[in-house]
């Protein structure tokens, strides 16, 4: 069972296939998605404690039921323009390779099932720097859901200098 889950997880990280459930959320006007298997929970915005000298996209740490969880600003990580926090701002906590991280998103929209095979991001978007964070783009009758490559986004402790 556990093994099944991990292989499933691996699949989700790299390729998102038809029938995959994703948590969809907004960053500015664009809609993004990550596999539901990586998502632990979705929380309202709480006090974030700033950590001096950390990488700029790391907003700080929060208290997640007694343990300390780093929070990253996803927009900043993806190089998108900053917008102020609103009451819709959420922290999506995800787990990738035993690393727990919270990600700030503008709003969580829904959990949806991708019903057609997503397009490879490299084919759809120009620019190497951007595509390394993306794993594919799901097209749901014209509604585009950009699938994120979580490993690239948070699996980079080297950069946090």
């Amino acid at each position: 069972m556990a093994k099944e889950l991990t292989t499933l997880k691996d699949e989700m990280n790299n390729v998102v296939d038809e029938g995959t459930q994703v948590v969809a959320f907004k960053l500015r006007d664009e809609e993004y998605g990550i596999s539901i298997l990586n998502v632990q929970e979705i929380r309202n915005l709480t006090d974030i404690t700033r950590v001096p000298f950390a990488a700029d996209f790391i907003k700080g740490v929060i208290n997640l039921r007694g343990s300390v969880l780093p929070v990253i600003d996803l927009k900043q990580r993806l190089g998108l323009e900053q917008t102020p926090y609103t009451e819709k701002t959420r922290i999506v906590t995800v787990t990738v390779d035993d690393l727990h991280v919270g990600m700030l998103v503008d709003a969580v929209t829904e959990v949806i099932t991708i019903d057609s095979k997503p397009v490879d991001a490299k084919k759809a978007v120009n620019g190497k720097e951007i595509t390394r964070f993306l794993s594919g783009i799901g097209n749901m009758d014209g509604r585009l859901i950009i699938m994120l490559n979580l490993e690239e986004i948070i699996g980079m402790p080297k950069e946090s200098k």
Partner: peptide
């Protein structure tokens, strides 16, 4: 004491 985790190594 809680560790800050892998994201903050080097800090």
């Amino acid at each position: 004491i809680k560790t800050l985790g892998n994201l903050f190594t080097g800090l």
